[in-house]
Amino acid sequence: SEFQINEQVLASWSDSRFYPAKVTAVNKDGTYTVKFYDGVVQTVKHIHVKA
């Protein structure tokens, strides 16, 4: 599913667990740039983002 900029989502971290994050960019290659609550910004594949 498509997510929008500033949408609150759950994004997987390197430990494969999902954490609350905010979408900061929707990228043309189908990835999302997300910002976790601790301030870390990461680009993740769409399969690693869920509502």
Rank of each mutant, 00 (worst) to 15 (best):
A51P: 13
N27E: 01
S14R: 11
D15Q: 00
K28L: 11
G30V: 02
K28E: 13
A21C: 04
Q4A: 10
K50H: 09
I5Q: 06
V44H: 03
D38A: 04
V44E: 02
G39C: 08
K50G: 06
D29L: 01
Q42C: 14
H48P: 03
T43R: 09
K35P: 02
L10M: 10
W13G: 14
T33D: 13
K45S: 14
A21R: 00
V40R: 12
V23G: 01
Q8L: 14
F36T: 02
G39Y: 07
S16Y: 05
V26L: 07
D15F: 01
R17Y: 12
T43H: 07
I47K: 09
Q8K: 11
K50V: 10
W13K: 15
Q4R: 09
W13I: 13
H48I: 10
F36V: 00
N27A: 01
V9F: 04
H48K: 13
W13E: 06
V26F: 04
V26C: 07
S16T: 11
W13R: 15
N27K: 01
V44D: 04
K45I: 10
E7V: 05
S1Q: 14
T31V: 02
I47R: 07
G30L: 03
V40K: 12
E2R: 14
V34I: 09
Y32I: 14
T31D: 06
K35R: 11
V49G: 07
K22M: 15
Y19H: 06
Y32F: 08
K35A: 09
S1C: 14
V9H: 02
D38K: 04
D15I: 00
F18Q: 01
Y37D: 11
V9K: 02
W13Q: 12
N27F: 08
Y19C: 12
Y19N: 03
F36S: 01
K45F: 07
F3T: 06
W13N: 10
T33Y: 06
T24Y: 02
K22I: 15
F18M: 08
E7L: 07
K22D: 03
N6K: 03
V26E: 01
Y32P: 02
G39E: 06
V49R: 11
G30R: 01
H46T: 11
A21V: 05
V26Q: 04
Q8D: 14
D15A: 00
T24V: 15
V41G: 07
V34S: 01
V41C: 08
F3D: 02
T43V: 12
S12P: 10
S12E: 15
Y19D: 00
N6P: 05
S14K: 12
S16V: 07
V41S: 08
K50N: 08
V44M: 04
Q8R: 09
S14E: 13
F18G: 02
T24E: 10
T33K: 05
V40F: 11
G30E: 03
W13S: 12
R17F: 12
E2F: 10
Y37T: 08
K35N: 06
S12M: 15
Q4M: 09
S1A: 11
H48V: 08
H46E: 13
A11M: 03
S16W: 04
K50D: 09
I5R: 04
G39P: 02
L10N: 06
K35Y: 09
N27C: 07
D29I: 00
K28A: 13
P20Y: 06
T24L: 15
T24N: 03
Q4G: 08
I47N: 12
W13D: 09
N27L: 06
N27W: 08
Q42P: 03
V49N: 05
F36L: 02
S16N: 14
K28S: 14
S16P: 04
T31I: 03
Q8T: 13
S16F: 05
